[in-house]
Amino acid sequence: MAETFKLRVNGRDCEVQAEPATPLLYILRNDLKLKGTRFGCGEAQCGACNVLLDGNAVPSCDTPLWSVPGHEVTTIEGIGGESGLHPLQQAFIDEQAIQCGYCIDGIIISAVALLRRERDPSNTQIAAALDRNLCRCGTHVRILRAIRAAARAMRASPKT
């Protein structure tokens, strides 16, 4: 049976009605119209659906709705968009670190979580943080470069 859940997504409170076991992915995409969180496998193996849950990158396809209340959810739309791009998004555009782009939002989410823990990550640390993210176009080299560039930019202007 559908139940009502109170969520906090991208800094806003909202209410949704759905089965408790519904993966957060579909609540975000279909109820809250936050389409930047993408379906990739439904098995927590590719990272395309990553969101921040209290600052940690988690696959939303494997996060049941009942577990979300009381936690802060951030999607790519909450990272940056209409009100201005996050330094990571800007770096991905500056480096043209995107081919088809389908995996990128999940990768940016993983990178946001990384850069909150580690202001100056090594390549090994970046690759480890992206261990749960897959990219099929082979944009990896640019993605790593963009994350390093964003880390530099964020260190230079610590507010972001």
């Binding site: 995409r29 389409k35 993408r38 739309e77 968009g81 555009i93 043209q96 995107i98 782009g101 940016i108």
Partner: peptide
């Protein structure tokens, strides 16, 4: 090297056939 025209939407929200309603 003109920057790709389609990238901004792809990293900020709806962009693909999957996102149509």
């Amino acid at each position: 090297s003109a920057p790709r025209r389609d990238l901004r939407s792809k990293i900020t929200g709806a962009a693909y056939v999957h996102d149509l309603e």
